[in-house]
Nucleic acid binder design. Structure first.
Length: 438
DNA sequence: TTCTGAAGTCTGTGATACAT
DNA sequence: ATGTATCACAGACTTCAGAA
């Protein structure tokens, strides 16, 4: 008899292939299968554990939580989900490459609610399984097409169903293969236009997908020295050992290649893809220290546009920075210090160093204005929730988070303890404080 | 000795990752 | 939405090596 597990073990889609399912998608599908929201599943997994790993429960997989990199939260989640489902999930994220490879800036951050997918993959999934799954590849930066079908990934534009009934907010399904608005499995309510992918986009997608297909045993060969060996092999074989030529062809800084080869730091995935394609080399072989020729071509500009960083060295002088801060201070709506810095294109450190007193004054002014705004939002929410509470009580209805929000029409973000949340909490916990004497 | 181009090093920036 | 900490990366600066 197989050992019992906390959750149904759901098979990871495309395991061992370039089409491997992402951890995010798996969490969503497991939640759906257990008739729970992802929020409920996460709070259950993070509640208490005797595994010695500490992590405070995240309320949901947020837009900024890079669940597929080797972040602490990601590691805890994958460990507990492996225990709970009894299956190996290491290949559902990029964390297995953490160490030799830098995993920052590798995830394609989606705008809230928007997802990217290959319409043909989704269609094919429906022939084999109940709910289509999301590929890890689709969530990576620089990947804009499906290497399997050669079409551009479709960015969801929302439910395309007309006139149909929308699912209530609190019971909307959250899975990449299901429309959250109308519940259409395979997102058949949308009519994506299939666009043939260009050769450079295809080369990038192919290159990264081969890396995702590496088995756990092959991943163990991806070490710091092996990656450096691979980089050196490409520079030697394709650019006669000339780092300047290699950097120029790949559209990356020459200093980067020097740093990779001389210092034992981890290397970003995106610039490695750039170098491998520029050198006509197989990236997955490069990661294990070998040079294997690949039939790929792209110019430095094409690579830089798709994978490179937009880096601009600021030319602002100290005087300009001081003037900029003075102007910002005189504004009625003072910007945050960080925003003031980015508006001028300088770092916060540089701006603070140029005018420490002005910097402090701006930060203080912005803080005061923010507190006033936050206070206003709290008072408004308090009065709205108190009105909703008395209306509910007069009808003999229960007063709780859900009914207060539904009746007042004012939604409070439960994940963030903002002014609305605090107002709702205060109304529920101690309403007598805010009741007017009759 | 001077020039030139390549290689090595340093420093500030961009982009997270996470907390508040 | 904003603040803070972090670190790879871009490009400026410096050093080195070989040729004239």
């Amino acid at each position: 008899m197989s050992p019992r597990t906390l959750l149904f073990p759901m098979a990871v889609g495309g395991l061992g292939t370039a089409q491997v399912e992402s951890l995010r998608s798996l969490v969503e599908r497991i939640s759906l299968a257990h008739h729970r929201t992802t929020r409920q599943l996460l709070s259950y997994l993070f509640r208490s554990s005797s595994d010695g790993m500490s992590a405070s429960a995240p309320s949901e997989i947020t837009r900024t939580w890079c669940v597929h990199t080797d972040s602490e939260l990601g590691r805890v989640l994958i460990h507990r989900l492996q225990v709970a489902t009894g299956q190996a999930l290491a290949t559902t994220t990029l964390a297995r490459f953490g160490g030799p490879l830098s995993l920052s800036n590798v995830i394609h951050l989606k705008k809230s609610g928007k997802v990217r997918y290959c319409p043909i993959c989704l269609e094919n999934d429906l022939l084999e399984q109940e709910i289509p799954y999301g590929r890890l590849l689709w969530e990576l930066r620089g990947v804009s097409c499906c290497p399997l079908h050669g079409v551009q990934l479709h960015s969801s534009t929302g439910c395309g169903g007309v006139g149909g009934k929308r699912i209530a907010l609190q019971s909307r399904p959250r899975a990449i293969g299901v429309c959250p608005d109308c519940g259409s499995v395979g997102r058949r309510c949308e009519t994506p236009i299939l666009i043939k992918a260009g050769s450079v986009d295809l080369a990038i997608a192919h290159s990264i997908s081969k890396v995702l297909a590496l088995s756990e045993e092959e991943c163990e060969l991806v070490t710091g020295p092996a990656v450096r060996e691979g980089i050196k092999a490409v520079v030697d074989c394709r650019f006669e050992g000339n780092t300047i030529a290699a950097a120029r062809a790949a559209g990356i800084g020459r200093g980067s290649i020097c740093t990779w080869l001389k210092k034992h730091t981890s290397v970003g995935l995106a610039p490695l893809v750039q170098l491998s394609i520029a050198g006509g080399a197989d990236l997955s072989a490069m990661l294990v220290g070998r040079f294997v020729s690949a039939d790929v071509h792209a110019t430095a500009v094409e690579l830089k546009n798709r994978l490179g960083r937009t880096y601009l060295r600021s030319s602002a002088t100290a005087d300009e920075m001081r003037q900029h801060l003075s102007n910002a201070l005189e504004c009625d709506e003072a910007p945050s210090f960080k925003r003031a810095a980015s508006a001028l294109g300088v770092s916060t450190e540089a701006l603070r160093a140029a005018a420490p007193v002005l910097a402090k004054a701006l930060a203080a002014k912005h803080r005061v204005q923010r507190e006033i705004r936050s206070g206003d939002a709290y008072s408004h929410a308090l009065s709205v929730y108190m009105q909703a509470r008395s209306a509910l009580l007069s009808r003999g209805k229960a007063v709780n988070q859900k009914s207060l929000q539904l009746h007042s029409g004012l939604k409070a973000s439960l994940g963030r303890h903002g002014p609305r949340y605090r107002a709702m909490h205060d109304v529920l916990s101690d309403p007598a404080r805010f009741e007017l004497p009759s």
